[in-house]
Design a protein around this nucleic acid. Structure first.
Lengths: 348, 348
DNA sequence: TTCAACAATGAAAGCGTTGTCAACCATTAT
DNA sequence: ATAATGGTTGACAACGCTTTCATTGTTGAA
């Protein structure tokens, strides 16, 4: 049984398809009696217009594509939620493109990122949002960057927390460096002198900024960021665990650790716990991102909020403007916020 | 600057659009020289076919709609990941429909659920997956159920963990009752006699099944499930906190608590910690769902895994069959698994 | 040499909408 | 009575693609 179309409705109502279209979209006056007849038929057949056909004609789909590296990382659902709340009210709907690689192959992830870019363009998404992902690893002039820039010429494209220099890409991002400064200063104000930085990938621009913020703040306070105390290599709980153990093996131990993200902080906390260290009495910990878990751990994690939700909302708004006003968006910076909870205290 | 179309390519290559289409889709033999010319032009203009037009004709979009209640709840990204991994290999792409209500209004959520159902049908999604949500609250014959059933007649529709009786809806689900039995038996085997159940909504079929599994197992072991020890009212961390406090105020306290989900368990754990109770020495805890955070808490949470990822994969596979074979799917049950970690121990 | 088979192509008919344009009718103003 | 207004309506041309059908050469077999 084929779906009914405007033609079917029109035929049975003895009107033209144009009229049917008019009553559906309220786009021109229709005599009350015919309107009612049409409406009745629509009801009777539960007619639902084919959005593909409509979009084909109108050249707009009301769909926004979101490309992200791993939906399982709680950071992303959070910004998605912000995105959704704002975009929904504007009538958009989402395409979810998770580039996670099953086997952890980062090349595969790269390929997927550019595949999705193409798919979204072919499917005529009204706009594209890219969050995180390999682009943070890419250098200006690299293939991926070029692809993204090219895509950006075809459809409004917004980078969230992407750190691409210049290039004419619009982005909205939290100021990672400022966040790192906030966190580091907090630790220093508490009286810590021996502070380590753990996690992330030094090659990625966001990690780099966090490290820079950390180092700079240490130096501003006349402190030294020791090389053996800044360890990068991942964003996971496991990373945190293994790095704490490495730190513990060193002749001298830090009294506080600033972690590249909350997951790493959780890992550190767990390893510390196993090693018989009390947080925050024996070791202060501050995370980054303020994912929901951060307030669920025991003790609750002091962290810096990247305002994912706000970033998401802002992104939706900005993208909407790019789509409707057809103007290139302006880069937007969101100020992070330090959230002091229970995992930090003065050193013994 | 308008996007280039097959016509533009055809014109410049001095061939018909049919030929262009043929080289794009490899759907009929084309002379090598013309194929190359066309390919070259496609490359030159970075031509990307309009998927809307194609879908309009082919009557397939390769899009699957996923309706879920709140992407921020870590349970859902997990099944989404399973879904994605399986569906991706089959060439599908996802529509994300989060029905979360900003103001916590459950009627609004209901409305949104049925709105999305319509949107997905209009956008010609090849299939629809509904996870969790209000449908668990609905009774057979209610409006929402009818709407879902009607939608299911128009497009392959699969319920994940939905507990609708009969009705001709296809579903794939984890056996909640069995999971509850596993958890309860584990506690009993450890030597607990005084066990409470906390969390969920009694009105929702999934909660009900968990409670039934709990009660039944208690009785099978000659134990009694006391009314004042089975408390429902939510799925959040806060729920867990407030309910533990309520339990603590009672003249007699349970030595173990079976929680309706992991989030509630976390809440209980936090409240217990505040109250000076050690988990698991003073209080054993088992959760439900096995969200990622379950293995991150201190102590790590004993829980029952609903195999979200497997359920997701299974759903993708099942839906794919419904779409391609055009056959009604068979209900599929996934067996849950008890995951013993650190939050349970024999009572003192 | 002739016919069948096949490779290579183009014309044109959709797919289900929307919007433009012109036509029609009934009022109302002149 | 006639022209002008404005509310209603239908025909039809897009939108960009795929596929069917028919047509043209070619080539191998009879």
């Amino acid at each position: 049984m084929k779906p009914v179309t405007v033609y079917d409705i029109a035929r049975e109502a003895n009107v033209s398809v144009a009229t049917v279209s008019r009553v559906i979209n309220n786009t021109a006056p229709v005599k009350k009696s015919t309107r009612e007849k049409v409406l009745e038929l629509i009801q009777k057949y539960q007619f639902q217009p084919n959005a593909l056909a409509r979009s084909l004609f109108k050249k707009e789909t009301g769909m926004i594509g979101v490309i992200l590296p791993d939906i399982t990382n709680p950071f992303f659902p959070e910004v998605l939620a912000g995105l959704d709340q704002e975009a929904r009210s504007k009538g958009y709907t989402f395409f979810l493109c998770d580039t996670v690689s099953t086997n952890g192959n980062s090349y595969e992830q790269y390929v997927r990122e550019s595949q999705y870019l193409n798919i979204l363009i072919e499917k005529q998404a009204d706009g594209i949002i890219m969050i995180g992902g390999r682009i943070n690893l890419a250098r200006p002039g690299s293939d991926l960057v070029n692809e993204v820039v090219e895509a950006g010429k075809r459809v409004p494209l917004l980078l969230i927390n992407g750190n691409l220099p210049g290039e004419g890409l619009t982005r909205i991002y939290a100021d990672e460096r400022e966040g790192a400064e906030l966190a580091t200063q907090h630790l220093i104000d508490l009286g810590h002198r021996n502070i380590a930085f753990v996690g992330g990938f030094r090659k990625m621009s966001n990690t780099l900024q966090r490290i820079q913020g950390f180092v700079r703040t240490m130096e501003k306070n006349g402190l030294q960021a020791r090389k053996e105390w800044v360890l990068d290599g991942g964003f996971s709980v496991e990373t945190g665990k293994s790095f704490l153990n490495r730190l513990l093996d060193l002749p001298e131990r830090p009294t506080a650790i600033f972690c590249a993200n909350d997951l790493v902080a959780i890992g550190v906390m767990k390893a510390a716990n196993k090693a018989g260290l009390q947080v925050p009495q024996d070791l202060s910990l501050v995370g980054f991102d303020d994912i929901p878990y951060a307030s669920n751990s025991i003790p609750e994690l002091t962290t810096v909020s990247l305002k994912c939700y706000d970033v998401g909302r802002g992104a939706a708004e900005l993208l909407h403007q790019m789509i409707t006003k057809n103007k290139v968006g302006k880069n937007t910076k969101i100020r992070p916020e330090l959230i002091v909870r229970e995992s930090t205290a003065p050193p013994k």
